[in-house]
Design a protein around this nucleic acid. Sequence first.
DNA 1: CTGAAAGCGCTTACAG
DNA 2: CTGAAAGCGCTTACAG
Lengths: 337, 337
Amino acid sequence: MAKRKPTIHEVAHLAQVGIGTVSRVLNNHPSVRPETRERVLAAMARLGYSPNPHARRVAGGRSYTVSLVLPVVSTEFYNRLLEGIEAVLTEERYELALFPILSPIRLQRYLESRSLAYQTDGILVSSQGLASLLPDQRFPTERPVVLVDAYSPRYDSAYMDNRLGGRLAAEHLAQFPGSLFAIQLREELDEVLKNTVGQERIEGFREGLRKARRAFPGKHVFLSRFSLEGGRLALQYFMRLAKPPYNIFAGADLLALGVLEEAERQGLEVGREVRVLGFDGHPWTAEKGLSTLAQPIEEMGAEAARLLMSRIRGFKGPPRARRFEPTLVVRPSTQGP
Amino acid sequence: MAKRKPTIHEVAHLAQVGIGTVSRVLNNHPSVRPETRERVLAAMARLGYSPNPHARRVAGGRSYTVSLVLPVVSTEFYNRLLEGIEAVLTEERYELALFPILSPIRLQRYLESRSLAYQTDGILVSSQGLASLLPDQRFPTERPVVLVDAYSPRYDSAYMDNRLGGRLAAEHLAQFPGSLFAIQLREELDEVLKNTVGQERIEGFREGLRKARRAFPGKHVFLSRFSLEGGRLALQYFMRLAKPPYNIFAGADLLALGVLEEAERQGLEVGREVRVLGFDGHPWTAEKGLSTLAQPIEEMGAEAARLLMSRIRGFKGPPRARRFEPTLVVRPSTQGP
DNA sequence: CTGAAAGCGCTTACAG
DNA sequence: CTGAAAGCGCTTACAG
């Protein structure tokens, strides 16, 4: 039998206070005496109390929930982004509702006025193109909207400087002998969402190589979806174009891993005949000895959550932009054995 | 300025009834006179009224929401599954909350007792392994749980007969001259979730070939993640093993598409030198001329939703199993030009 | 700093 | 069939 969840009344009774005081503790209201707060907290812990979110919504007129609209593509990236966002929201006692855009149709549905995604206090949007798809680049809602891993002059944005990442990749790889290659990320869904992440990285790379006066013909770029196998095919393609050594800027860690696997299969020595640089800085790159451009993904997510919370709390200033920078991490895959 | 949403009181006033009657109309209560119902409906339409879901939850003790816990891997599959589920839920005036398992850690989080996923009236679970990971194979909740695209003797289940699909694939491909090959789906996340879909399809295939007395050595199976590029690598691998013609059972439409692309690149004639059979029956297979095992995914999703709704309404019987069968669709990729 | 009370927008017996 | 009323579990002025 499901024992009924304790309510605010039971907590109040146990702590010997009124329900109003319990509510104040719940909402971090400043005017509660520390000892009282302690007593209430203890009672809540003892009863295993957690407030009924629906009741809070009805009474308070707020939902204490934030929506995150995200394309589910690069799972590890989004997993880390979620970590960062949730860390902040948990502290704020807010919940997160996920709205994955599995298809363009589904995207449309989320944007309809009555949509679920809008029944929350604010919206985090993690697709560049979402805004650009809309008339006037505005989301049809009165609630605060914050972009994460995307930028718009109309909304608060926490975004990654992908172009800088490309330039850093170029600076690093330009020092080695041999030809230069790159894998450009490209997903079908990205095209719908006008996501230019892959493109920006390559443009930065090209820019950096130009500055370093290194040749980089157009055919040295291999377009690939986001998959390990795409990295393998890329190396096969590069091997048809030139002799070793290959210096490869893979658009993502997963693609770089594919390059490593194919290099092993082809008997090419990593760090000498094949040098490969990833992008993301996922934890597993360390044990693979993979050089990479580490993105502070969690930090970016956390900052986006903070920006949104400040809007929910009533901040009215002009849009704020928070730029995050990838950092070069050099490991055996680009420094020899 | 956001004009305040109309409430049940305004509807009642306009329709000249009590709020109880409006509520009854909202809940399809039988005892409302047709004319009264009409009047109320008209008033709701006129005011653009939609009930406040949070208030309904507080007052009714129900959330009118169902959770779907899903691994986000094969996006198109899950997109179709969602279509089927949502079609039923929309009709029932229920909402769907998604809980994608982006990582094992996140899975754990969803299963914690206080978790968001449990704050709904029922849970749809679409990963075989979720149950098997739990002690006693039971979800720690009192709410109804229904499995979709998975089977357990403990819960209502709507599942696909993947083994049958494999057998049908074998029957079809066994009629052609040339060697037989297969691609077996295998994701890292699947291993955590003990998802055996890929394995079942291959087992069925092996079984069917045995019956047809066709040779099928173990090395003729290529293990691949779920990606188009995996299909391309598979064909490369098969070409190293044998001469054409190749008869390939790809574990999924996307893998089959990769085989088609690589065949073109290698100059192999599809339908004669390479025959390939997908699995899923996604809409785009028609225009690609791809033979496939069509899964009634939407129907399976809809049935799962119906099973859950009946539990939510109080059905107490023993677990019900609903088996769905893939159907062979023959197109040019396995019937010659 | 804190309690008692009104109120959020609904649902649901209870009477009629 | 329908209305008036109590109640769901909270929040938040309003007094003290």
